[in-house]
Design a protein around this nucleic acid. Structure first.
Lengths: 207, 207, 207, 207
DNA sequence: GATGAATGAGCCTTCATTCAT
DNA sequence: GATGAATGAAGGCTCATTCAT
């Protein structure tokens, strides 16, 4: 689903690289996604990675650290994807909204597995990690909100409750991993088109 | 299992004889909501209910059963609320959509606590219970979908992808418990109005 | 297997009579036999008797007491059967040996169920009960031993190690409940004949 | 699983690292023998072995598995002892009977402890293990029966009911651990002689 | 005679973690 | 880089027993 090499595509994460390290990350992602933080046992993670339990402790300081690393990894990835998408835009709110929705849908599809975890399991992070992650999330939320507010201000978007609009759009995108089937008929691009359309309707975009 | 005496909050002691069952349900709802299925310990549930662990087992056969009872209770409630709301409507799709969105928002606000659990934790139910709950859920989904499809057929709603529309509306409503503050400025009725408006936009309702 | 009325056929036991009381004794006998003392749960006993757990405590002071009552009941029965059998004999050791073996085989067949428990589970009796039961047992053992010793003294039996002979005879009889099928071809009388023959061989009886 | 270091008896502490497995087997044998399967607590087993409860689970998957391992170990040992004893014989039934009785008595004395458990507690084994053990037992029983039947066929043994004869012999030997005192006057060899004599009488051996 | 509700101790098992190698 | 052996805390659950009715 996610590949081992994927986690090598960027840095800044808490997860070291190497043969065993990657296998562990992959296994951890899967098992945390399947069973949630408390339902997952690091024994099972090590087993699925084909390593001993002690090896896991060589790579990661604790279950909490392993989990937090995964989450941060994933959310970092998302924020950077948003930034990149918006850097390629002018300042037209509609264009920017389309770009960020595209980036969001793309992320939810690409990182379906951990994306689903992140949505449900932040509450299991201890303070320090939780703070960092909450901050990252909020920064993404602000991106959304700023775009919408600006669109409203300019008279391009017409909606009475921009906060609710933002929540609705994000909720719709966040729910994608719950039902999306990567082997189904709808490809990522077509899916993004559909959610872009929904978002434009929610904000009341009239060109 | 549903609680009339829910008001007698958990003061830590002095549960009158014979009322242990209710106290347990209340405590279980809270703790499952706070920590999720695997994160919740039945010892803690019993403690919060002011009863012994063994008393919990007098009332409920297992953690799983206790949890499933709560979930079923709650989802049953929702389905009945939807049915009731739609029974009071004519056959105008727009009216029916408004009614079911109102019922949904109302439910998410009224039963914020277990509603949040249900959304995240069904996967922890074992087959038999899971089947029953999935069926209940689907029946609610079908209500939504039928209304939207009928609106499109009649030419009252204009949307190319009615399934996606339905998903977006449901996702938006489902997310409410994640942020809604019952002590905030927005009351349940006003909230419902806002989500009704969003839903009408998503399906492209033009009167 | 054993009948409720059976336990009314004598007195002196710790088990009161009455509707519920009998049902409990029967159920207890079965369950203790199936699972042993520690493996049996008084909940299951009450359930099989069709009574509530509290009712069991009306009839019996504790699990230990219930169990001990059964055992004493059964061993008393055996000792009395031996006495009766020997009272009907002259003082010929061979005749007496035949009588006591017959009584023993008969007892093992008639009270197959609790007889099997008694053999294995005395160690689970607490001191007071254990003492009484051990005494009863020993008295039966002495009956056997005296007969054999007397036979040897008189020159009717020829065996070098009368204690071992007694042990072998008793062990053979005690093992009957482990394999005997009351619905099989061999009836109790024929079975007794066979064990009488074995016993005579073991003690080296030559007429 | 079999114990070379059995001599290092349970002194309550200081099990050297890496030798926990043996200590556990020894302790388990003792405690299961003293209290039976259901009466034994694995906490007590671990304690007597001088290890933590978790260490027990490092070595054995469950109480059931630990117990089954012990039983199988012991019965395997017996079957092999019988085979070896018979391999050293000619085909004279009397000689063979003497050899197998000797092997049986020897086994009951040597492995007094677990031998007593095995006799009483097989019923506590779950299907898979139970099947294997029952098969092993039957193979030993068949050895006995074949010898006796052949003796009868040849006219060396004279008994009307060879099955009962076999049962009586086995029962007598099986009962040895219940009373035998290794520190008493009768040594294993003398004991075997006595039971050989009893067995020959039971089958009616006339040279 | 009998019951429903409740308890505390103990059960088997799994958990995340550590230590020595 | 990795492992095998061991741990203490906590998990869900069952036990024999009691109390009030």
């Amino acid at each position: 689903m996610t590949t081992a090499s994927e986690s090598s595509s960027h840095n800044g994460s808490a997860i070291p690289r190497g043969q065993g390290g990657d296998a562990l990350s992959v296994a951890a992602r899967e098992i945390f996604a399947e069973r949630g933080y408390h339902g997952a046992s690091i024994r099972d993670i090590a087993k699925r990675a084909g390593l001993s339990l002690s090896a896991l402790y060589y790579w990661h300081a604790s279950k909490q650290e392993l989990f937090a690393g995964l989450m941060e990894d994933s959310v970092n990835d998302y924020v950077q994807a948003c930034d990149a998408a918006l850097r390629g835009c002018g300042d037209d709110p509609a264009e920017r909204l389309r770009a960020i929705v595209r980036a969001t849908v793309d992320y939810r599809v690409r990182r379906r597995v951990e994306s689903a975890i992140a949505a449900r399991e932040i509450r299991n992070l201890e303070t320090e990690h939780a703070r960092r992650l909450a901050a990252l999330r909020e920064s993404a939320t602000r991106l959304f909100q700023d775009i919408i507010d600006e669109g409203v201000r300019r008279g391009d978007f017409h909606c009475e409750h921009p906060t609710e609009a933002r929540r609705a759009i994000q909720a719709a995108c966040n729910a994608i991993p719950q039902w999306y089937d990567p082997d189904g008929d709808v490809g990522p691009t077509e899916l993004a088109d559909r959610y872009v359309a929904i978002a434009e309707r929610i904000v009341g975009h009239r060109p």
